[in-house]
Simulated scan of single mutants.
Amino acid sequence: MLSFAVRRLVMLVPVFLAVSMIIFLIIHLIPGDPIDNLIRTGSTPEQKAILTAKYGLDRSLVEQYVIWLKKLLNGDLGEAIILRRPVSSLITQNLPYSLALGGLALLFSTVVGIVTGSLAAIYKDSALDRGVMALILLGSTVPSFWLGLLMILVFSVQLGWFPVSGARNWHSLVLPVLTVGLGGTALVARVTRVAMVDVAQKDFVTLLHAKGLAPLRIQLRHVLRHALLPVITILGLRIGWILGGAVTVEIVFARPGLGTLLIKSLNQRDYPVVQGCLLMLAIAVMLGTFLGDLIQAAVDPRVRGNLK
């Protein structure tokens, strides 16, 4: 198991380098100049050139990338051009809000998704199954920002149950968690249902029925356990994607977090901050995939054998 984990970790190194290069190039090819947000009206070209040289923006893209990568490998994400603070401190300040939102949304989508998907598979082709599938279709097609605005209108403005915005207490987390988690719930429920229906057609399940075991016990103890393998893969990917999906939700609910910091920095063309935020999101996806592979390998030894 340890050798499998080491091999998977080594495979992430070239992926990390490729992702860092793509992030750097995309940010620097976006039209706009962060120096324009620093200089005052009436500043001379010489003053702008001095600021450009100060932040190393007068160098070629290759030189800028090499310098940034060297600092990055030493744990230095650079300094924000506009806010003039270390990027690491800005991310450290905002990341806990995004982790709280993403973690609770992931927990919600996992529990509710597996339960609803299991019910749909156990009662296949019933009214319950059709109802669950209709809700899954609705949850996977509704945009998160629209769902967030709808929840604010109903539960905050009309009913007054939850605050409209902010992150003052746990009440302010309820609506954002539901908004982010419902999309993931639909995905997890769909994968769980399909996997359970597929496993239920295997020969060993027929043998269990022939032995006289209760159908519900077979579904919950044997079919669901084998069907969780693809669900684990989806959840591993969701760890990173759910943080990315929280970007728009944080804006809708005016919450602090990595998404709010990213959008603000994009508007200001603050390259170091945008690069740092995007890199954190990319690392979250890679670590989520890595953790998903480890859990899969622990559950199914055949996965470990595929990389030998």
Rank of each mutant, 00 (worst) to 15 (best):
I122N: 08
Y123R: 15
K124V: 13
K124Q: 15
S126Q: 12
S126R: 12
D129Y: 12
R130I: 02
G131W: 12
G131Y: 11
A134M: 06
A134G: 03
A134P: 00
A134N: 02
L135D: 00
I136W: 05
I136N: 11
L137K: 00
L137P: 03
L138I: 11
L138G: 02
L138W: 04
G139R: 04
S140Y: 07
S140I: 13
S140P: 02
V142T: 01
V142Q: 02
V142F: 11
F145I: 01
F145G: 01
W146G: 05
W146S: 03
W146I: 03
W146R: 03
L147P: 01
L150G: 08
M151F: 15
I152P: 09
I152V: 14
L153H: 07
L153K: 11
V154E: 01
V154C: 01
F155H: 04
S156P: 03
S156E: 12
V157E: 13
V157W: 14
Q158D: 14
Q158M: 13
L159S: 09
L159T: 04
G160D: 01
G160Y: 04
W161I: 05
W161N: 13
P163L: 12
P163T: 05
V164Q: 11
S165V: 10
S165T: 10
G166E: 04
G166T: 02
A167D: 00
R168Y: 09
R168G: 08
R168C: 02
R168I: 02
N169V: 05
H171G: 01
S172F: 06
L173W: 15
L173P: 02
V174D: 01
V174F: 09
V174M: 00
V177G: 02
L178Q: 04
T179M: 12
V180W: 13
L182R: 04
L182Q: 01
G183V: 06
G183N: 14
G183S: 15
G183I: 05
G184C: 03
A186N: 00
A186L: 04
A186R: 04
A189K: 05
R190M: 06
T192P: 13
T192E: 08
T192C: 10
V194S: 15
A195K: 10
A195E: 12
V197W: 09
D198F: 07
V199S: 11
V199R: 10
A200N: 14
Q201L: 10
Q201A: 14
Q201E: 14
K202H: 15
D203E: 15
D203I: 11
D203S: 15
D203M: 07
D203H: 10
F204C: 08
V205E: 09
V205I: 15
L207S: 02
L208D: 11
L208I: 03
L208G: 06
H209I: 05
A210E: 05
A210H: 00
K211D: 05
G212I: 04
G212V: 06
A214Y: 08
A214E: 14
P215V: 03
I218Q: 01
L220C: 13
R221Q: 15
H222K: 00
L224W: 07
P230S: 01
P230Y: 03
V231W: 11
I232R: 03
I232E: 06
L235S: 12
L235N: 11
L235A: 13
G236A: 12
L237P: 06
L237R: 00
L237H: 06
L237F: 04
R238T: 04
I239D: 02
G240K: 08
W241A: 14
